[in-house]
Design a protein around this nucleic acid. Structure first.
Lengths: 188, 188
DNA sequence: GTCTATATTTGGATAGAC
DNA sequence: GTCTATCCAAATATAGAC
């Protein structure tokens, strides 16, 4: 009989996201996803009729929503510095201060379905656009603003990889601390 | 009967490396490895009795040897700038100008055996040490030299991720172009 | 040293009871 | 909406011929 406390959608997505972030698309087995969520395989299929690709898609949707909140401070009209600092804090929380990887990295290896990779690319584009916009408001030319945003994304993604390889989350903290300067002054 | 032209060790490792770089450890199936190498599964097991973990270990060994050659220019006593530029050229070739990923990234997700992850960490450490050494010879304090080396590694790994996600290898070219300044002047 | 099997295990997915 | 049970395909791995 039904025994599980019926995990709610948000908590479920959070657990699944964690697995995909740590293991990548190919490495995230249904066994992993099942034990992380506390739901048996068949229950996961009930929630996600498209199976693992559907779970990955839902995870990317939820990450997109999370980034809506992460990037929201960048909309502030004044105090650009405070806005970027707040974004950095939220990014830090999202990546558990460097202990969790990025879906842009882990879910884009070969083996992941094409639409998953496309979704990841779109997420990157949204993030870049938001950072470029704040750079532009800080006085950068459109071209320079795009460059600053890319530099920022490179430093974050690179720091997450290095933090994982060296098992030293501190590397990620440094990347976050450098964001205001990268985006607002363009010195890199 | 035996039909294969008996691929030599170096070429074999190169093919296997490419698969692991593109697909990650979990995503690299024996079917992939077999078709990439032109050897049937059983033949791969003949060469690597430890199976897939053994193949991955051999791949990391060969990448370590490749880095021996990539980092060799950094030993030059004078013309540090030329030395770093030559290293950057070799790094560019190794990553096929940004079209191939890094084993440090793709082989360190959860699912890879622990000793693979340890080997990757060691490789990162060797690379960092070589870059820090050239920074120190350019006048940096030991502490600053370590920081410059980490910044360089972060920019390379981050650029490879961004290049893959956006399908734009140009991002990687920029990271390479920035190496001399990052390592020799410390402006970042 | 490579091949053609074949064994074994794991992963992805469904059916149907409750 | 979750479960048990099962199916099928794919992945890892081995045996033995050539």
């Amino acid at each position: 009989m039904g025994r599980a406390p019926s995990i709610d959608e948000d908590a479920l997505l959070k657990r699944l996201t964690e697995v995909f972030r740590r293991s990548g698309y190919a490495g995230a087995s249904l066994t992993d996803l099942s034990s992380a969520s506390g739901l048996h395989r068949a229950s996961l299929y009930h929630r996600f009729p498209d199976g693992k690709p559907g779970m990955a898609a839902a995870v990317l949707d939820s990450v997109e929503r999370a980034f809506g909140a992460i990037l929201e401070p960048l909309n502030s009209e004044d105090d650009l510095s405070g806005a970027v600092e707040e974004m950095a804090r939220r990014v830090g929380r999202f990546y558990d201060d460097g202990r969790l990887g990025c879906v842009l990295d882990t879910m884009t290896l070969r083996g992941a379905p094409d639409d998953i990779r496309a979704r990841a690319a779109r997420l990157a584009t949204v993030w870049l656009a938001a950072m470029a916009d704040v750079a532009r408001r800080a006085g950068a030319t459109p071209r320079d603003a795009d460059r600053r945003a890319r530099t920022a994304l490179v430093s974050i993604e690179g720091a997450l990889v290095v933090a994982r390889v060296l098992e030293d989350p501190a590397e990620f903290q440094l990347a976050l601390a450098g964001l205001p300067r990268t985006l607002l002054t363009g010195s890199d």
